[in-house]
Computed example of a mutant assay.
Amino acid sequence: MTLATDSLSITPQILSLISELDEFKGAWKALGTLAPERLSALRRVATIESIGSSTRIEGAKLSDREVERLLSNLEIRQFETRDEQEVAGYAQTMETVFAHADSIELTENHIKQLHRDLLRHSAKDERHRGEYKTNPNHVSAFDAEGREIGVVFETATPFDTPHKMRELVEWTRSALAERTLHPLLVIGIFTVVFLEIHPFQDGNGRLSRILTTLLLLRAGYAYVPYSSLESVIEQSKEGYYLALRQTQTTIRTDAPDWQPWTLYFLRSLQQQKARLEKKLERERITATSLPSLSTEILALAKEHGRLTIGQIVTLTGANRNTVKKHLQSLVAANHLAQHGRGKGTWYGRA
């Protein structure tokens, strides 16, 4: 591909960020202190955050709590609103990537299949899902209410899209195989160029984040499902759009300015890692300082979101009075919050 990556200056700041992320990547491989059910709970929370954030970045309005309720009923095949359709498609496509990343190579065919899966529940997108765009489109920014507030960037024409995508995929595969650049830099460049092309009629932003996760997993960053990169991006949307625009306007010139997007991308990965480190530290403190039943109750609360005493008794097999005592201690220590009164009482994360 005719991308002038030689213009990417590997500054001490970029080297430091890459080194920090690779150090954590190595530490994660050696991590064996958390029980599988606790890792599962961490991943479920991160997945809910990722789905909610990624769809809200594109204008959806469902909260994380609404996303969680929807995910608990994914056997439903008809979704009433477009927001629900987008959340369901994003959730199922992410699960595909988590489960099969090793076997999903970066090819145009796989990219189209993931796009088709992403929009599988959206009747509005039925005609164009899994196929490159046939009409011009552009990148828009949305405010907190989901209203479009302006065009961020003009994208590739439908005529140019197929060969630009072919070149991008070939360049990315070659760069990753030959290690001509560090994998994190290659993944960052792939993402910003993919969004500059904007190859599909709709769903490009969401698909770009799914593809970023896929490439990170294939590059050995196995911790990414346990901390939400999408949530980091949602909370820095102004910086996200600014970095995209600053780099994208230069991509097709002789001297692209990769620096704005590269720094934003690496700093976002740094934030993702830092959030996971904090969660792991809380898990370790909790695991070493609480009785085993209390630890189990906390893990269940993370996994299910809300629990009644009856549910906890059923899931743990513990005595009802014993469960009540542990719940009282967990609420007093601010590990859990009690909601409602009497028979309507339930418990969730504080």
Rank of each mutant, 00 (worst) to 15 (best):
H115R: 09
R116S: 14
D117E: 15
D117N: 14
L119Q: 08
L119S: 08
H121V: 03
A123C: 04
A123P: 09
K124C: 01
D125W: 00
R127M: 07
H128K: 06
E131W: 02
E131M: 10
Y132P: 09
H138L: 11
V139F: 09
V139L: 15
V139T: 12
S140M: 07
S140D: 13
D143Y: 08
D143C: 06
D143I: 02
E145Q: 14
G150C: 03
V152R: 02
E154P: 02
E154G: 09
D160E: 14
D160I: 00
T161Q: 06
T161H: 07
E167Q: 14
V169F: 01
V169E: 03
E170H: 09
W171N: 12
W171C: 07
W171K: 06
R173I: 00
S174Q: 13
A177K: 13
A177D: 13
A177F: 02
A177Q: 13
T180Q: 13
T180N: 15
L181H: 13
L184W: 00
L184C: 01
L185D: 11
V186T: 15
V186C: 05
L195P: 04
E196M: 01
H198I: 00
H198V: 03
F200E: 08
D202P: 10
G203W: 07
N204I: 07
R206P: 11
R206Q: 10
S208L: 06
R209Y: 07
T212K: 01
T213E: 15
L215S: 05
L216S: 03
L217D: 10
Y223F: 15
V224Y: 02
P225N: 06
P225W: 05
Y226C: 08
Y226T: 10
L229Q: 04
S231Y: 08
V232H: 02
Q235R: 14
S236R: 14
S236A: 14
G239W: 06
G239Q: 14
L242W: 12
L244G: 10
Q248G: 10
T250S: 14
I251Y: 08
I251G: 08
R252W: 12
T253I: 06
A255E: 13
P256F: 00
P256E: 06
